[in-house]
Amino acid sequence: MQELIIDLALPAERYLAWYRGQAGRVVMRSRDGRSVSLPAHHLRPFLRHEGIYGSFVMRFTDEGKLVSLERLG
């Protein structure tokens, strides 16, 4: 299993593009510089009125399948 740390700052207006069908994935960069593309619905539990902000740990299999996504702190 692998894990990445991601610092995310996603304003609510940008996330709403998923609700409108204009976007299916969110592309982020991990702290170690890797680009990560994640289906937007995985971020929904973290959505607040202002958007999604914070640091997250993403765990995934060696094949790239998401195992868990948790907010740090």
Rank of each mutant, 00 (worst) to 15 (best):
G21R: 01
Y19N: 08
H41G: 04
V27I: 14
G33T: 00
R25I: 01
V27A: 10
G33L: 01
L69M: 12
R20E: 14
I5V: 09
E63V: 03
S35Q: 14
K65M: 11
P11I: 04
V26A: 00
L69H: 09
G51A: 03
S55H: 13
Y53K: 11
G33H: 02
I5T: 15
R31E: 11
D7E: 09
F60K: 07
H49S: 10
P39C: 04
L8Q: 13
S35W: 05
G33A: 10
S68L: 08
G51Y: 00
R59E: 10
P11T: 09
L8W: 09
G33S: 06
L16V: 05
G33Y: 03
R20H: 09
R29K: 10
A17R: 14
R44P: 08
P11H: 06
A17M: 15
G33E: 06
L10K: 00
G54K: 06
R29E: 15
F46G: 00
E13F: 10
V27H: 13
S55G: 15
L43I: 07
L72C: 15
S55P: 15
I52F: 06
L47G: 14
V26K: 05
A17T: 12
V36T: 04
L66H: 05
A17N: 13
Y19G: 00
D7L: 10
S30F: 11
I6L: 14
L47M: 09
H49Y: 02
I52S: 04
D7I: 04
L4Y: 00
G54V: 03
P45M: 02
Y53D: 13
L4G: 07
A9T: 04
L47Y: 01
Q22E: 14
E63L: 09
P39D: 07
S37F: 12
R44M: 14
F46R: 03
P45F: 02
P39L: 03
F46H: 05
L47D: 14
D32V: 06
Y15E: 07
H42W: 12
V36Y: 05
S37G: 12
D32L: 05
D62G: 07
A40I: 02
G33K: 01
R31W: 02
G73K: 13
S37L: 08
T61H: 11
S68M: 03
A9G: 13
E50H: 12
E50C: 05
A17E: 15
R14E: 13
D32W: 07
R31L: 14
G64D: 00
V67I: 15
H49C: 05
L8P: 02
P39V: 02
M28G: 04
V26I: 03
L43F: 13
M1A: 07
G24N: 10
R34I: 02
L47P: 14
R31A: 08
R31Y: 12
R44H: 13
G21I: 09
